[in-house]
Write a protein that binds this DNA or RNA. Sequence first.
DNA 1: TTTACTGTACCGTCTGGACGGTTTCTTTTT
DNA 2: AAAAAGAAACCGTCCAGACGGTACAGTAAA
Lengths: 188, 188
Amino acid sequence: MVSAKALETRRRITDATVQIMLTRGFPQLTLEEVAKQANVSKGGLLYHFASKEELLMGVIEEQEARQFQQYQTYREQGLGQMEAFVMLQAQHEEEFCLDIDTVLFLLSLLKENAAFVEERKKQVHQFFNQLIENMDPVEAMMIRFTLDGLKMSEHFQFGQPAPDLRHALIERLLRQARTIDQAAKKQN
Amino acid sequence: MVSAKALETRRRITDATVQIMLTRGFPQLTLEEVAKQANVSKGGLLYHFASKEELLMGVIEEQEARQFQQYQTYREQGLGQMEAFVMLQAQHEEEFCLDIDTVLFLLSLLKENAAFVEERKKQVHQFFNQLIENMDPVEAMMIRFTLDGLKMSEHFQFGQPAPDLRHALIERLLRQARTIDQAAKKQN
DNA sequence: TTTACTGTACCGTCTGGACGGTTTCTTTTT
DNA sequence: AAAAAGAAACCGTCCAGACGGTACAGTAAA
């Protein structure tokens, strides 16, 4: 149905989109700029994504798929629910890879395709709520928000911690996550 | 020099700017929309802020001034350094008032007037670093990032906690802040 | 022959900003 | 105190340029 070449091109395009959002800002997020960054022509871009809206929805779906897969992998490796969550959110230090929360957040600032974004936001929210169902909500929230704040500081280079401090912080969060996971397990 | 009326108009304009950024997204952030929301004509807007760039810089300065003043007030009321910081960041629940971090963050996404924004980011960062000079950096970072994450969730309506949960979280952060403040005091 | 593009030309819309004019406030002069 | 002058605050229109999107002719590979 869809060739591997086409898939790779689509991915190049969605990656370019995210990269431009982060490094060059929204005003630069034009179809022409995305095409240039992804090494396709504007016509080629519109061949894959018929409009800017479709492109942005494509970005969401791409990231969503990647992230869900990664979470499953962590779980299969034996990590607890909260532990896997922390790992998932904390992995984006160096490699260029946006998590779905940040993508949704960025796109909600565009307020284009609002309905689609809202729907996905609800899904992600539900996922987290299920995750923490049997846990202390304040502790879980604190972990989540800390990770969100950390991600923001890194994506937007605003007060991000030095590597060793970051490491210490993640370790601290992981310890807390494991405690929460074990407490939840006992409840069942 | 500058009349009270003019000051009030300027403030109406900067408030409208922020409100549009948050509620309607960047694409709607046009001079005409800002003018409409602020109940001035486009010409009137450009009288106060000669360009879009100046407008955005004005927004930063406005928020910066308000926030600094608020922090001073908290300190004069006898709150500790970290405690005042938490209060400052946590107050934005209902009233419409953006903190300087979020403003800088939003504007850094525009990448216009980049140099100006970068400079202010450094200042805010320095302020925080001085604040936590004698404190446990991991604990301080955790408080800060939690607040950042919370603010994001509220500004962008994405997984924000219910009021009672939020209250519990802030209480928890305040307790932790007071502990940190006291530990820092003893060090001196 | 279909798929996956490239390249160019083009259209309608919107935006920032310039500009000329008008009203409102302040100050100076009479 | 009134009048005149001037500055400050503001209005509404116009325009060049940029953007998203369309159309289409061509091409190279599978």
